[in-house]
Every structure is written in structure tokens, then in C-alpha cells.
Design a protein around this nucleic acid. Structure first.
Lengths: 80, 80
DNA sequence: AATTTTTATACCTTTTAAGGTGTAATATCA
DNA sequence: TGATATTACACCTTAAAAGGTATAAAAATT
């Protein structure tokens, strides 16, 4: 077992959005063009990821990585 | 010459904040613990960076990478 | 409960970011 | 303008992410 944080912001965001879109990890992998392994590690909270790969996935959901104040972090998922 | 986008959001954010803090790239490198090379590539808009390294720098400025709607991207630097 | 689908884990290989260092270019200041 | 400080570019090495695939576990569907 790994000790990644599945509850971390990005991981949660992607899992949540993917579920809402009724997609499997395989489908998301296909649609976004990133490897299946990457989708899995992303959703499981792997701490160190390549930013443009993350963006490749986020873009599919109309989002992108941007610097935001830490105090605002708690409302990062505000977009539903 | 590389063809990176120095005007990209993260690059601009870091350069801007560093300048406002009256720090050199070397100092920012020291304070954040990331390599000097990384600070430079970051500020010059290298597209592919490791997310936790970026966060290591952003944290110094009280920020962190989070998924934000693309439509909101233009106000990413809202925090001054 | 059994079958199918989806997700998680483990192996190996390839790719590439990160870091260090040295040098050149640019900017800052006396 | 000349000296100093800061930033940019180019080399190489090392570390680790990404990807593919195969297997196991867990969830969902019937």
C-alpha cells in the first residue's frame, strides 16, 4: 500500500468530476490522452505529478491549475 | 532560445511576487529549497513542471496549485 | 452467488524533469 | 563607462515520473 492522500484537492476533484460525468478511468484516459496509470495515480493522490499532464486532464473538465491563496483552498471545489 | 511562454499564469505569478518581495532568484531558491535552475525554468514558463516543486515555491507566497475554472483564469492573480 | 466491469497493485522500460556547475548575456549602479 | 549583480543559456548526471502490461482485488450488475 502507498500512503498517498486520496483526499487531496486535485485527486478529489478529478474523481468527483469523472464520476459525475459517468466515465471510467479508462475512458478518461482515452479522452484526455494521458496514460491510464496516470489517471489512477492522479486520483489516488500521488504527490508529485507533471503539471501539464494534470492540466491535460483538468482541461477536459474546463479547469486548469492556477496559484490560489491557501486560505481559499478550502473552497477550491466551489465549482460544484 | 526556447519557445516557452513567459506570460503564462504561474510564471508571471512567481516573477511578480518575487520582485515585490525584493528577492533574487538565488534567494528564492534558497528560501524555498528548490534548485536555482528550477526557479529560472519556472519563471521562464517551462510548460512541464513537477507539481510539488511548484507548490514548494507557491507556498512561500501563501499560495498553492488548485484546479480553477478556465473562465476564471483571467482573474487568477486577483490576490494582487 | 456468479459474472462482468471497474479499480488497484506490481513488474519493467523509456522518457524527462531536476539539480549542479560553468559561461555568456543583460541589468544595475557607482 | 567600468564594475558588480542578476538573469539566461548550455553542458552532463541522477532521480523519478510516465507508460505499458499483466494480475489481483473490489464493485457493480444480473
Amino acid at each position: 500500500m502507498n500512503n498517498w492522500d486520496r483526499e487531496n484537492g486535485i485527486a478529489q476533484f478529478v474523481r468527483d468530476r469523472r464520476k459525475k460525468a459517468k466515465l471510467t478511468q479508462v475512458e478518461l484516459s482515452d479522452f484526455t490522452g494521458v496514460g491510464l496509470r496516470f489517471v489512477r495515480e492522479l486520483e489516488q493522490g500521488k504527490p508529485n505529478l507533471m503539471s501539464d499532464k494534470v492540466n491535460q486532464v483538468l482541461l477536459f473538465f474546463g479547469h486548469t491549475l492556477t496559484p490560489t491563496p491557501i486560505s481559499d483552498e478550502t473552497r477550491r471545489n466551489m465549482g460544484k
